[in-house]
């Protein structure tokens, strides 16, 4: 059911996992600042951060052997961390009106 991380991928795995969450943070930060200051240029940075997130999620999937059934998790990470900041921002605006 689970194919553990290979020994030689140990270090890279931790790196990739940390990168996933930091990229998610970077994306959330740039996205919300772009909205806050209404700066389009920052949205490009947000796009870039999401690109890093995508790459790191696939890298993580490769290192942790997330294939077959586990590839659902890859989709969940991409969608979940991708949509959360957008939805939350809209919620912020809507609740504060």
């Amino acid at each position: 059911m689970v194919e553990p991380v290979a020994l030689e991928h140990f270090f890279l795995f931790f790196f990739a996992a940390a990168l996933v969450i930091f990229a998610a943070l970077g994306y959330a930060l740039t996205y919300s600042f772009a909205r806050l200051y209404q700066k389009r240029s920052l949205l490009y940075w947000a796009g870039l951060a999401y690109g890093v997130l995508t790459v790191s999620v696939f890298w993580l999937a490769y290192l942790a052997n997330l294939h077959g059934f586990w590839s659902i998790l890859v989709g969940m990470l991409l969608v979940g961390y991708g949509l959360a900041p957008v939805l939350i921002w809209h919620l912020c605006v809507a609740t504060h009106d």
Binding site: L29, S32, F33, A84, I88, C92, V93
Partner: peptide
């Protein structure tokens, strides 16, 4: 936790 970050920036 990411949601809190977005909210606190707002």
């Amino acid at each position: 936790l990411v949601a809190m970050v977005v909210h606190s920036i707002y």
